[in-house]
Write a protein that binds this DNA or RNA. Sequence first.
DNA 1: GCCAACGTTGGC
DNA 2: GCCAACGTTGGC
Length: 157
Amino acid sequence: MNYWLMKSEPSAFSIDDLKSMPNRTEHWDGVRNYQARNMMRDTMKVGDRAFFYHSNCKVPGIVGLMEVVREGYPDHTAFEPDSKYFDEKSDPNNPRWYMVDIKYLRHTRRVISLAEIKDHASLENMPLVRKGNRLSIMPVSKNEWDFILSLEDRPER
DNA sequence: GCCAACGTTGGC
DNA sequence: GCCAACGTTGGC
């Protein structure tokens, strides 16, 4: 099983939005970065787990857990002229952008903030805390996954 | 293939 | 709102 971290701005799509969807499931559309695209298209598998990360907000951090329930398939919003994710260069016969379907599992018992993640030496290799990294989807090692989950029941600092 | 200009991301 | 860092674009 692979582990991931997926960013979303809560003002656009939050973990509560995901939880409120039918079957608590939604497609993760709008990713327009090739590295992230490749991971969704080639690497993410049904059953993989992912952290839901709130970015560009008051307290950026990990807010919940999700599960991949459908593997990479073409992101149809790229073909819709009215979508904010429209990309005229994405040809339906040779789609440029892919997405996966993701299901809400639960909120973390508290927000694991970016500031806290930065404080732990065992998490220093996460792309999330590397300078200038802008990947919206990134792999998480099993050790990092387990360590972050262990933070949940430590008192908030 | 280089690189300047531009747009976006995202923390602060 | 600011701005550093990065990816993309397009002229040459």
